[in-house]
Write a protein that binds this DNA or RNA. Structure first.
Lengths: 67, 67
DNA sequence: TCTTTATGTAAAGTATACTTTACTTTTGAG
DNA sequence: CTCAAAAGTAAAGTATACTTTACATAAAGA
């Protein structure tokens, strides 16, 4: 799965730490998700979408390899 | 988190087993998610949205308790 | 250069998503 | 009522999301 978290953060001028705080997860969790190291829960995806004033589908994209 | 999976399945006249097969997870996984026993991954949420021709936000809803 | 801020990374531990097998209960058609 | 399909449940195991602590690196400004 791909994501546009970095871009959305840039739009809002927000650091990984800022986003982590707003979403109530650790900064490392945001970093890992942003780098595609793992897939967030749907709760976290929904929270990010809400924080960025957008939708889950505009942040996260299925790829061919996604089982 | 709440969800409307049962309703979406009904619209498409689809059993839990049907949905499980399309999403490539077990039937028990669908059952547990539908009953709110756990939160799916974002990949699974995106797949369900795609299967139901709708969006993640129309299937899954954050609640007050959601950390 | 020195310092600060943001990002990346790593390892160990905990919580939880998901699987498999198998059984029970509910529901609806006939 | 009966039978079959659908849904619910449970337990044990595996995979992975997420935390905490800690350190490394890069960029930018004083």
């Amino acid at each position: 799965m791909k994501n546009t978290i970095k871009v959305e953060r840039a739009k809002q001028n927000m650091t990984q730490a800022d986003l982590a705080e707003k979403a109530k997860v650790s900064r490392q969790t945001i970093n890992a998700i942003e780098l595609g190291k793992f897939t967030p829960s749907t709760i976290l995806a929904l929270k990010m979408a809400r924080i960025f004033n957008t939708t889950v589908e505009q942040i996260f994209f299925l790829e061919d390899g996604d089982e």
